[in-house]
Design a protein around this nucleic acid. Structure first.
Lengths: 85, 85
DNA sequence: TACCATTTGTCCGTATGTATG
DNA sequence: CCATACATACGGACAAATGGT
């Protein structure tokens, strides 16, 4: 069975949507579900998977960059960086 | 006289650009100016004719698809469907 | 075979306006 | 006032499919 991660999102709670989605993606990176040097879900895919606006998806990816987890290449996508461990 | 449809577009009004352009193209379909099984203007042609961004042209065509007026074939174009009437 | 132009598909980046809490 | 979230609109870059040379 495939896990879409939808159930971890709480739209009523105090945590911003983009932080919740970033946490969910970070978890998938940490477990290896999203492998190093492979792309994470695109903005539009995040929009569909989590039912969020594109601006929210962009904030999610920006936060993941600030956390040092991913690098973005214009016109290609956002990729998982090698883990520092 | 030739009608370019440009003058019907209102960039200040409340109606989104892509809806206005879709309405204009739908009118051309309804009058037979764009015949059945023939292509409508390509995305790039809509960009030039209406002076809009390509993303706006894509939303226009997507809306026409949702209205059931056209079908799109990758690498070929978007074509007028047979009228249901 | 290879190449090329056209067209649609898919990405990212940016900006503005509106609405809500 | 400010942060969050969504919708609209613009721009650029690259990929895939098609059809022709």
């Amino acid at each position: 069975m495939r896990w879409d991660g939808l159930h971890v999102i709480d739209r009523e709670g105090p945590t911003p949507l983009y932080v919740q989605v970033a946490d969910a993606v970070e978890a998938r990176i940490k477990t290896g579900d999203l492998p190093v040097d492979r792309p994470i879900p695109s903005e539009n895919q995040l929009v569909q998977e989590y039912e969020i606006a594109r601006g929210t998806a962009r904030k999610t990816i920006q936060l993941l960059r600030e956390r040092g987890l991913v690098v973005t290449i214009v016109g290609r996508g956002t990729f998982v960086r090698p883990h520092p461990d």
